[in-house]
Structures are given as C-alpha cells and as structure tokens.
Design a binder for these strands. Structure first.
Lengths: 334, 334
DNA sequence: CTGTTAGCGCTTTCAG
DNA sequence: CTGAAAGCGCTAACAG
C-alpha cells in the first residue's frame, strides 16, 4: 500500500481512505490513487487489516461433522452463500470424531480471529466459549453451557407428524430408530410419543430403539432384529436420513414391507422401488438463517437476547409411509 | 501476550519462544510462562502471526462449486481432514454460478493470505494467479493459463471402461450424455470413442449428446428425446453423477430399460429398482492428494515441477449396465 | 538463556 | 481534504 502511495504521490492514509470507500477524498486525488492501484495490481492485505484492535477478520467459522452427509453439506452451502454475499469467507474447522476434537477445532478457529462461529455441536460442554468474545450461533441443536442463538427445525413437531401419519394409517406397532444422544433424537421421540397420546395409543417400549451409532449399518442391523421378532412392528420411523437408508437396506434383504417414514429428505428418495415418505424441512434455510443471524451479531446490528429460530417440518408422502398394517407382514414375492 | 510476559515476569520474546515450542528456554522459566498462559487463558493470535513478511497464514483455501454435489462434498471433507491433521484450517470461497464469481472468490482468498489454494476450476482463465506467489493445486480438472499441480481421475480410461463394457455386452448404439464444456467431458468422450475403435464399432454421432446444462433436468430431457427417436440407443452412458440421475428419471417415466452406466458412484445406486452400474474412482483420495500436495508446496518441502496425479477408475457392475441390447427396447410392464 | 527492539501492512487519530 | 505518526499482536534479530 505504501508503494501505491508513493506512486500516486500521496500519503498512506489517503490510499487507505480510497480503498475503504473513498469518503473525504477529493475526486481527483482518488482517481490518481485508483490508477496507481490498478497499475500495481495492489490488493489489500486482509490479515493486516484484521489486526486492528477490536476489528475481527471478515471470516465466519463453520464447525460441523461429516460434510459427506448431505444434511451438513446443505447447511455449509447455504451459509457459504449468505456469507459470501456480505464479503465474508467461511472457514471450516476440521472436526474429527473424538469429543475433544471439536473443542480443539473451535479454539483454533477463535485464534484465527473469526468474526463469528456457526456450530453444529456434538455432545459436550461449550461453556468455554462464553468468554471468547465471539458471537456464536448453534445450528440444528443447542449446546450446553452457553446461552447463544440457535437455529433448528421443529424436531418434536416433525416426530409427531411422522408418527401421527402412521397412526392415522391404522398402525399401532411403530418402531422408532434413534441415533445416539443427539439432542434432536430426544425431541423427535417426544413428538412420536405425543402423537400416540393424541390418539390414545400406547407405545410399546420395545419398539423404541436406541442405536449405538448413528450410521446406516447400525440401523440396518437393528431393523433386521426387530423385524425378525415374533411380534414385528408394522411401521418404522427412521429419525435420520442415514438411518432411513439402513432401514431400507435391511427391509430389502428381508423382503418385508412395513410402512416407512424417514426424517429429513434425501436425494433419490422418490426413485427407490417404493418411493420413501419423509418428514422434511428446509435445511438450506437452516444454514441461511444461521449465517444471517451471525452476520448481524458480528456487525453489532443485532443486540437482542439470544434468539431461537425454529423451522417447520412438512410431510412428503411418496408411498412407503402409506402402506397399511395388514400389508406390512407380507413377504414380498421374489 | 504482553500480559502473559508481565505476569510471568519475563520478556516478550521468551513468551513467544515458549508458545512456539519452547526451545532455548530454561525449563523453570517455561513453567512459569505456561502457568501465566493458563491463568490468563491466553491464546495466540494467528492473525498477527501471519502478518510477518513471507509468512503465510496456516489456512488453505478450497474453491469449488456446489457443495451439495456429493462429489464436491467428498473432496471438501477429505482435504479438510488432511489439512486439519497438519494444523491447517480450510477456507471455503463462495463460488457463485457466474464466471467472474470464481475469480473474485479466489482473489478474496488470496488477499486473506492463505498458504495455498485448491481449486476445482470452472472454465475461464487462471493466469491471473501466476504472480500471486501462492501455490495452487487444481483438482479434478486442469485450468488454462497456469501451469500448476493437478490431481484428477483417469477420465479417458473411465470413459473407455464404461463404453467397452457396454460394447462387450453387444451394444452398438450407445448414447453418451455430456455436461457442457467441462474438461472432463472431453476426456470421457475420448475414452468412449477409443473403446469403439478398439472393437471396430462406429460411433453414431447423433448419440453424442452435448447437454446445455450439467444438471439432472437437462439429462432427463435429453434422455426422453433420444429414447423417443425412431432409432433409440440400446444403452446410455451418463458422464456425471447428476446426469445419471436424470437419465434414470426419464427412463422410469418412459418405462424403458436400456443399459445404463454412470460416471462416479453415488449413494443409493445399489438400492434403485435396477441397481446402477458405474465407473467409479476414489473421490476422497482426490481431496486427500490435493491437500497433501498443497501442504508440501506451501511448506517448501516440494520443489519439483508441477505434478500431475491421475487416479484410476474402476467399473462397479450392479445390473443396469449388464442389460443386453435385445432387452433394451422392451416396454416395461406396469 | 533471556530481554529489547524493530517492523509486518493497515487503520486511525491528530495536526496541518 | 491530506500527510504524518502511533500502534494492533506477534516474531526474529540482536544484544546482553
């Protein structure tokens, strides 16, 4: 920048002013500066810029699990778009599986002076962020130990929607598969129970299945087991996109066709032999809202107490969720 | 950091040395410093650190298109992992659709002093990066105007593999769907032609279909059109995961079943009514290699001339690609 | 071994 | 309106 100043025959401060909008600089001078900038191919050093006290860099951090999960990928994409529109870059923290990994990643990001953090939290305490002086928005699930903004979907409503739909079909033995210890899991189960209460149906607790892991394999195994019982369910509610996949795999192998409803839509759901009914929400909006909120917090424009944004869920009927109880036990002809 | 120094009753330099590994500091002193660091909850400011001349920040940039495409998501995830292991963060540049968007995003990233760039380039010239003084690794396709490292899959080999497989099945009318103007497109087509030459089959040029867009909808439309011709193909080679999806949608709607081979594997490919045969490569390895190479370049450990890493493709037979020509025209019974 | 000092590139008073 | 000067937090070179 000093080169630009010399070349334009002006002071350093003037160049800075021009670069930052050019207010309070005579037009003629500004022209000269801009010319010099072009000639030298000058680009402002964002790093030095963020060194100023108080000033944070123009980057947001996004901390999430597996980008390979379309759910997370959608969030990333959407927040990236919103951030980009405001000239913010998004730094992705690498998050390993281990519980400490997330904390390490977050601290790394904080030390990079990001202007704000979007976190899809794993279990674990996040109170260490309280004194960091960085705005935080949690996505998809709240975290313990920190009262921050949170953007999520209506998990309980979605769970209720799925179960109610199956109950309305006449199902009374509805298995629910739950990924371990996610916050969302509890809420979806709650909705499932509520739907049962609303029609005076009792929940067979042996059909509430807590999986040891949140992947398709665990769901596949559990589905196999529950379907081979003497009293199998006539319907299955898979509380996660990956779980749904596992359920479908097991059912295909077994040649059974209970009703199936999944939570979260997924690519090709409509192309499977029996198109899959799901409870879906606007995941991209999750990411967009989070980024918008964070941007407002970072700029100081938003000083309200921590917000809680809840996005609605909707049922998408495609076929698998509309099977009736009597058809469920039938062994598919091959 | 100055606070830490005061609290520990040592000089600023000493604290810096401790923070950076503590070589050349008496153990006792180091202890005191570390204690002060803990008490003050001190965290090094990475931004100030990267201000040093020559020193780049400990972040890599990743520039790619749509994270919602599992192909890109895999690359992102894998490179993120590798970078994270070396203490590097990954900054994602938001890439809009427009051609200028990519350039803007890249320059933004460069101005953030990233230590290196991984770019999945869109069309357009990248020579402007030549003088940036930042190592660049292109991923999946090379860019024009810049001789940099490139990591990609064996597109031509893959295209050949797909076509050869179909030809071996007796197919002689194989449509190939190509996304517009991607580098990869040309190579895959080349492989397709080679496979034909190898068995002395001639290519019906009306079956080489250049799509106006690279999405599923365009593929769906094109498939519908080509299948409704008087002389439809008996097999279709979809040169991209999204295109494959479009092809399948069209075929389901038409109730036709030509052989289908896709390029790039995708989730649930094995769960569709007819499991889909694909030519696949290790996408994650693409991301990993890119990150590793870039890290080596950034650290100066690798001073070789630009490398060209090509990953192999393999055929995964699942059923759709093993249909024979005579079954192709049959209208599926509903 | 350890304290001091000079910047890195930029923004921001503070004078002129 | 514009130039000069003081740092931001840190590292590296240089004396002790």
């Amino acid at each position: 920048m000093i080169d630009v100043a010399r070349r334009a025959g002006v002071g350093l401060g003037t160049v800075s002013r021009v670069v930052n909008g050019g207010h309070g600089v005579r037009d003629e001078t500004a022209q000269r500066v801009r010319k010099a900038i072009d000639e030298l191919g000058f680009q402002r050093n964002e790093v030095a810029r963020a060194l100023r006290p108080g000033k944070k860099s123009s980057s947001l951090a996004l901390v999430l699990g597996d980008l390979t999960n379309p759910f997370f990928a959608s969030i990333a994409k959407a927040s990236l778009e919103v951030a980009g529109q405001s000239g913010f870059a998004v730094v992705l923290g690498s998050v390993d599986e281990d519980p400490e990994g997330e904390k390490r990643a977050i601290q790394e990001l904080v030390s990079r002076q990001v202007a704000g953090l979007m976190i899809v939290p794993d279990q674990g305490d996040h109170s260490f962020l309280a004194g960091a002086g960085v705005p935080v928005v949690f996505v998809d699930r709240p975290a313990t130990g920190l009262d921050a903004d949170i953007v999520m979907v209506d998990n309980e409503g979605g769970g209720r929607l799925a179960a109610a739909h199956l109950l309305a079909q006449g199902h009374r033995r509805i298995a629910i598969l739950l990924a371990p210890s996610y916050y969302t899991t509890g809420r979806r189960l709650r909705g499932y129970r509520r739907a049962h209460r609303e029609v005076d149906a009792t929940v067979d607790e042996s059909l509430v299945i807590q999986l040891p892991e949140g992947n398709a394999e665990a769901a596949e195994k559990a589905t196999r087991e529950v379907m081979l019982r003497a009293d199998p369910p006539t319907a299955i509610f898979a509380s996660t996109n990956f779980l749904t996949e596992g359920v479908l795999r097991a059912l295909r192998e077994l040649g059974r066709e209970p009703a199936v409803v999944g939570f979260d839509d997924f690519r090709l759901a409509d192309m499977l032999p029996t198109p899959v009914t799901v409870v879906a929400s606007d995941i991209a909006e999750l990411g967009r809202s989070a980024a918008r909120l964070l941007l407002d917090r970072a700029s100081g424009a938003d000083r309200r107490p921590p917000q809680r944004i809840v996005l609605p869920c909707a049922l998408i009927q495609r076929g698998s969720g509309e099977r009736t109880p009597d058809s469920a036990g039938n062994r598919k002809r091959r």
